[in-house]
């Protein structure tokens, strides 16, 4: 039975992977997937703390987070499709109109 530390480490690893992916990739969809990975790291943390404190708040929080992640995924993918239609590419570099 792993303790709280293992769960937290798993969450941190997921978050760090997501962050690295987010910072290093240029494809809009991959960037978006990376944010989802970071999200899951946070959800694992919430569930781990719920288990530690024997309190359901963390679980409820995790469910809410999943719902919001799903909604946000729909929205974000819609945006990505629109952006792709505009420029014909998924490269984030193509969208630098507001450069000062």
């Amino acid at each position: 039975m792993p303790g709280i530390a293992e769960y937290l480490i798993l969450g941190a690893i997921l978050f760090a992977l997501g962050l690295v992916g987010f910072l290093s990739r240029r494809n809009l969809i991959v960037i978006f997937l990376s944010t989802e990975v970071m999200f899951q790291g946070v959800v694992i943390n919430a569930v781990a703390f719920a288990r530690l404190h024997h309190h359901m708040d963390g679980q409820v929080f995790a469910l809410f987070l999943l719902v919001i992640a799903a909604v946000e995924a729909g929205l974000a993918l819609g945006l990505v499709v629109l952006l792709y239609r505009r420029k014909g590419t998924l490269d984030a570099e193509a969208w630098s109109l507001m450069r000062g």
Binding site: L19, F22, L23, S24, R26, I31, A92, E93, W95, S96, L97, M98, R99, G100
Partner: peptide, 18 residues
């Protein structure tokens, strides 16, 4: 002076956010 920060690169913004 300020507009040099506005590079237009998504990753740049993300990095400064982090």
């Amino acid at each position: 002076l300020v507009r040099t920060f506005q590079s237009g690169m998504l990753q740049g913004y993300a990095l400064s956010m982090v």
